[in-house]
């Protein structure tokens, strides 16, 4: 038996502690230990991105991180987006533009889009495509996903500068 390691991870703003085997994948820690089943597992080759979470603010594939590596760090999962029961604007965008069908890739797509808009509030279509190129969707053909991200970006710009419509977009 391998030695268990005590980890303390801040998940969606809450400190969570557990003794884990070193080999435990972060995605399994989130899903099995914490019951946060929004992060999905769609492959085993770091290809599909259904498990995407934010690790210290950066979008990463939680199937390719060990839970022990997240010790002392911050993780945001799909369940951690939005506040006070309200959807985040990225989630709202995916609802408004139906950027999904079966819903399985959706949490990862939303997280990748969220990370993009944090860094680049006004992305071009090409930038959106690149940002979600580590996430596979088998249902939609991506068009509605791209529209969803654009919708969210637009909402973000409206929210940020309502009184300064002429402000230059960065």
């Amino acid at each position: 038996m391998t030695q268990a390691h005590h980890v303390v991870v801040e998940v969606n703003g809450v400190k969570r502690e557990a003794d884990v085997e070193p080999r435990l994948l972060l995605v399994h820690f989130l899903r099995e230990n914490l019951g946060l089943t929004g992060s999905h597992i769609g492959c085993d080759t770091t290809s599909c991105g259904a498990c995407t979470v934010l690790l210290d603010g950066k979008a990463v594939k939680s199937c390719t991180v060990l839970a022990v590596q997240a010790d002392g760090r911050k993780v945001t999962t799909i369940e951690g987006l939005g506040a006070d029961g309200k959807l985040d604007r990225v989630q709202e965008g995916f609802v408004a533009k139906h950027g999904l069908q079966c819903g399985f890739c959706t949490p990862g797509m939303v997280i990748s889009a969220y990370a993009l808009l944090q860094e680049n509030p006004d992305p071009t279509e090409e930038e959106i495509k690149t940002a979600i190129s580590g996430n596979i969707c088998r249902c939609t053909g991506y068009e509605s996903i791209i529209e969803s991200v654009k919708h969210a970006a637009k909402a973000g710009r409206r929210r940020k500068a309502p009184s300064r419509p002429s402000r230059r977009r960065s």
């Binding site: 899903r31 019951g35 946060l36 089943t37 929004g38 992060s39 999905h40 597992i41 999962t77 799909i78 369940e79 939005g82 959807l87 989630q91 995916f94 609802v95 139906h98 999904l100 819903g103 399985f104 959706t106 949490p107 939303v110």
Partner: peptide, 19 residues
């Protein structure tokens, strides 16, 4: 709940989510 809303919240319930 509207399925789209469930799905964007990560509240979809797939087989592997069952405990």
């Amino acid at each position: 709940q509207d399925p789209d809303v469930r799905f964007v919240r990560g509240a979809g319930r797939y087989v592997d989510d069952i405990k």
